[in-house]
Computed example of a mutant assay.
Amino acid sequence: MKEVKQQTNSRPKQADFSPLVQEVITVAIQLWRLKIFCENAFPTVQDEGRWIGEVWRQACDKLQVEHTLDMNISRLITSQTSHTRGEVKTKHPKVIEKMRSHATKLKDGYNFVYKEPHKDVTKRKGLYRGKIIQKCVNAIWFANCRDEGVCFPDSFSPIPLPALALIFAAIENCIDEWITGIHTGLDFTATEYEVVYQDHLKSLYSFRDHSKHLNILGNICTKLYNTGRFHSGAQPLDNFRPPVISIDALNAVIDEYKADPMTETDGENGNISEDSA
């Protein structure tokens, strides 16, 4: 497949490629974003090396295109990592700014993830049911019926634990900007917040395993997805109508005709059978 000539000494751009390859790159970037959200927001070099081949192959298969993955395309896709993480922070509801006077209390023992925070850990209620969590889920992945949470239900139903950990790490970043009482911009970088993300992920896995006999976290994540989908205005999955008559239904019609070939002759002479009336 012929390419538009690329500038070898400049940063690769999607516009450098032919329209069809640009389309494949767009799909691959979409799939890459899902990896960041749902698998690991701070991927290792090994993760990226594995993912890039996966998303490119899936994108090519989806669009039925064969094209070699080169270094420039790889750079275009992997450069989306920090941008994707940054979106999680920028889409956070402004409620964090309103809580700036309580920043230290919010940080204490992950108080912000509770529905009813308290300085005494034994009196806190509603772990992982804080209102800010649903607000963030809605804003980041369910802003409208075309958002990623709606378009990729297999990835977001229920909300994956790495996605929650990313939300919590971004919330901490926002809280940290107000920790002194005066706003100080802090970049949401891997250097500073990968360990925060991993700590939240460990806590989530620990709670999931500790309460697995009740599936508490699973139910929370399912509710987050269902509420987010409702917020987006998208039709509930359970109420989706099949787009076409199913193959089974068509086969049943054929079997019916084979059993009674006279069916299609009813009414040929203007007569309507009793069954048709």
Rank of each mutant, 00 (worst) to 15 (best):
T263D: 07
K94R: 14
S246A: 08
H118F: 12
I247E: 09
R100M: 10
V24P: 02
I216D: 06
K258L: 15
N138A: 09
H102Q: 15
K98Q: 15
L250W: 11
M1K: 13
R229N: 00
D16A: 06
T68K: 09
R146N: 15
F17S: 02
P158K: 02
W56P: 10
K5D: 10
S203V: 00
P12A: 01
I73L: 13
K115F: 15
Q6L: 10
D154Q: 05
D187Q: 10
Y110S: 14
K35M: 09
S18W: 02
K212N: 00
I96K: 07
L127E: 01
P153C: 09
R229A: 04
D266F: 13
T8Q: 09
Y110L: 14
I220G: 08
N9K: 06
E172H: 12
R146L: 13
I132N: 09
R33G: 08
I216G: 00
N271G: 07
G270I: 07
I96W: 12
G86K: 05
Q64I: 02
I159A: 04
P162T: 08
V21Y: 06
A252H: 00
F112S: 08
D176C: 09
T189I: 06
K89H: 07
T184K: 09
A28I: 07
G109W: 04
N138K: 07
D255C: 11
I96P: 05
K131E: 15
N271C: 05
T44N: 06
V137W: 00
T227Y: 01
L76I: 11
A28Q: 07
M99C: 05
E97H: 11
N219E: 15
N251H: 11
P160L: 01
